[in-house]
């Protein structure tokens, strides 16, 4: 091996190594496609653990709604359907802008990517804002499980203009079970809101990196994988909204 044959080879190797250390093609992956697939695979495995996590709470809701049906109907009907529906639309809009953000990163439009990430964040914050007013009402009515929980509204339902009860009154023991509904309501929507808060923190971090152009030179994985997380949070709400707000509007007669 004389230097004349070694040197061109070494130069070739270093050129090759420069290429394979791109963020979208780390040197331990054969191809960019393989790296992307491995990343998506890992993200989906994480999301599956999240499905199991939220799934446990959905199961608890399914079971207790059957056990304490009257209490769940009465408690569910104190929720504000208009706010819930508006929040569903707001969250879907946020998810739509996130999806567009992935497209902008793929076609390497930096300014559009940053704009879509900002819009995703704005609608995410709007969702949490509406949620704040919903929670506030629950605190004012003492419908938060715990020592200050008040069952009186379920034992003596509020009267309408004609002087009739707006809901069938519940016996005191069943009225206590409305706490279980509100416990699950706060656990499920609270965990969902926590996921959104984490998502919004990540969005600010991604916005900064996107502004520096890190995701519009072929390295889309962080945007793509965050998009998967954000859409997963959307899907949780798509199920929470009908189950918590809608399915109890017409209770079954016994």
């Amino acid at each position: 091996m004389d230097s004349a044959t070694v040197n061109p080879q070494a130069e070739h190797d270093s050129a090759k190594h420069h290429h394979v250390s791109l963020p979208q093609h780390r040197h331990h992956f054969e191809t960019e496609e393989q790296q992307r697939e491995a990343g998506s695979f890992g993200m989906w495995l994480f999301l599956l653990t999240e499905i199991m996590f939220f799934g446990g709470m959905f199961f608890a809701y399914l079971l207790y709604r059957n056990w304490y049906y009257d209490a769940f109907v009465a408690a569910s009907n104190t929720l504000n359907v208009k706010m819930g529906a508006a929040n569903t639309a707001i969250l879907i809009t946020s998810g739509f802008f996130m999806a567009l953000g992935v497209w902008a990163a793929e076609v390497r439009k930096k300014n559009l990517l940053v704009l879509f990430l900002i819009l995703t964040t704005v609608f995410g914050c709007a969702f949490l804002g509406v949620k704040y007013f919903e929670y506030k009402e629950k605190f004012e009515l003492h419908h938060v499980p715990g020592n200050s929980f008040d069952v009186s509204q379920f034992i003596n339902p509020p009267l309408n203009a004609q002087g009739n009860a707006t809901r069938p009154p519940l016996p005191p023991d069943m009225a206590q079970k409305t706490q279980l509904f509100f416990f699950l309501y706060f656990a499920m929507t609270g965990m969902h809101a926590l996921h959104m808060i984490i998502g919004i923190v990540l969005l600010f971090w991604l916005m900064g990196r996107a502004q520096r152009g890190e995701f519009t030179e072929g390295y889309v994985a962080p945007i793509e994988n965050f998009g998967l997380y954000w859409h997963f949070v959307d899907i949780v709400w798509i199920f929470l909204f009908p189950l918590l707000y809608l399915i109890n509007l017409h209770p079954l007669a016994h």
Binding site: G95, F96, M98, A99, V102, E224, G227, L228, H231, F232, D234, I235, I238, F239, F241, P242, L243, L246, I247
Partner: peptide, 19 residues
């Protein structure tokens, strides 16, 4: 009906938004 609609929405989010 509510769960059927929610499932349909979930599936199209998974298929298209989540690619």
């Amino acid at each position: 009906v509510a769960l059927a609609i929610a499932s349909f929405k979930g599936v199209i989010v998974i298929l298209f938004f989540m690619h």
